[in-house]
């Protein structure tokens, strides 16, 4: 169980590194949104699943903590794409230009 937890957490950290590099290297706001919206959700969900695995090995009343972490996962899973839409829409309405190949 602990090995599974470590595998999940390190996979999540690798995906988070990819998200960060994408956030730093992409040329415009819209494509940065791609990296943020996807990598953020997946890496957080993976790391929290690993936390559930660690918690459930400790015994006692810890299944309640596992359920609470599952509730956090639920909120992130619903909230993160919705926040991404809201920010994309704000950028579109505020007039951010999409990046083209010949614009640089």
């Amino acid at each position: 169980m602990e090995i599974l937890a470590y595998i999940l957490i390190s996979t999540g950290l690798i995906f988070f590194l990819g998200t960060t590099i994408g956030l730093l290297r992409f040329p415009d706001f819209y494509s940065r949104m791609h990296a943020a919206g996807k990598g953020d959700t997946l890496s957080t969900v993976l790391i929290l699943l690993g936390c559930i695995c660690i918690v459930s090995t400790q015994g006692g009343m810890n299944w309640l903590l596992g359920l609470k972490i599952l509730l956090i996962i639920n909120f992130i899973f619903i909230g993160s794409p919705t926040a991404t839409h809201a920010m994309m829409d704000a950028g579109k309405k505020a007039g951010a230009e999409p990046w083209r190949k010949d614009s640089k």
């Binding site: 995906f15 990819g18 998200t19 590099i21 994408g22 290297r25 992409f26 040329p27 415009d28 819209y30 494509s31 791609h34 990296a35 996807k38 990598g39 959700t41 997946l42 890496s43 999409p98 990046w99 083209r100 190949k101 640089k104």
Partner: peptide, 26 residues
């Protein structure tokens, strides 16, 4: 599908010739 999407973003973000790979469109 989300895992596939993350691998896709990862590949695009780490490729040294990123500007040729990108073709944004609405």
């Amino acid at each position: 599908e989300i895992i596939l999407a993350n691998l896709h973003v990862f590949r695009v973000a780490l490729s040294p010739r990123m500007n040729e790979l990108l073709a944004p469109s609405l």
